[in-house]
């Protein structure tokens, strides 16, 4: 049996599902493991009280008005973000050349007029509207925006890439470097 099929049988048995054609060694291993995992779960299930944490969460959600905020569709947010980008009139250039010390996939670089950090914040906000949580790190005068990128991006996420002329992120990671135009 190909190893891949054997692995799938193993996963099925681990999940408590039948795998009628599985090898007997695979069945023994996965069933023993499942029993061990369930036993460990039972023994480590400490009855901790989650209520204080929940009350803290609800308090914070109320403070930040996150309980009542009406949910607009992502298309609405994307429209706002696009309009904001145009209004800012930021000149964005994707530089193709790769710096010699870069390893791994090429990182697109934006050269902007004005503060790279401000532009990075705009990008982060824009990403947030398409459901991507990004973070910013500053390395010298360059600001890097990084985020996990879904294996199957939705339309609004794809549109984000197109809008900024970005290549498809490699290995599930979006990286953009932003620096100021040379003075």
């Amino acid at each position: 049996m190909p190893e891949r099929d054997d692995d799938q049988d193993w996963i099925r048995i681990l999940g408590g599902k039948p795998a009628p054609d599985a090898r007997s060694e695979t069945v023994k291993e996965a069933e023993a493991l499942r029993r061990a995992m369930l036993a460990q779960k039972r023994s480590s299930a400490e009855p901790s009280d989650v209520e204080p944490g929940l009350q803290r969460l609800l308090f914070r959600l109320r403070q930040e008005k996150l309980l009542d905020r009406p949910f607009a569709s992502w298309q609405t947010y994307a429209g706002f973000a696009l309009a904001a980008s145009l209004a800012l009139g930021i000149a964005v250039t994707v530089l193709v050349p790769r710096s010699p010390d870069d390893s791994g996939p090429e990182i697109p670089k934006f050269v902007v007029k004005g503060e790279p950090m401000k532009h990075a914040n705009d990008v982060v906000r824009e990403l947030e509207t398409v459901g991507i949580t990004a973070r910013i790190t500053a390395v010298g005068e360059t600001v890097r925006v990084e985020a996990d990128w879904p294996a199957q991006p939705n339309a609004s996420q794809q549109e984000f890439l197109t809008r900024h002329k970005l290549p498809a992120p490699q290995r599930g990671r979006l990286r953009i470097e932003i620096r100021s135009e040379a003075k």
């Binding site: 996963i11 681990l14 493991l33 499942r34 995992m37 294996a151």
Partner: peptide, 22 residues
């Protein structure tokens, strides 16, 4: 991830969504 398969009946696609992988 294996615990989610064993306890919650996650499929490979469910694990893929959590890992953000294909």
């Amino acid at each position: 991830m294996l615990a989610r398969v064993a306890f919650d009946g996650w499929s490979i696609e469910d694990v893929a969504a959590a890992l953000k992988r294909t």
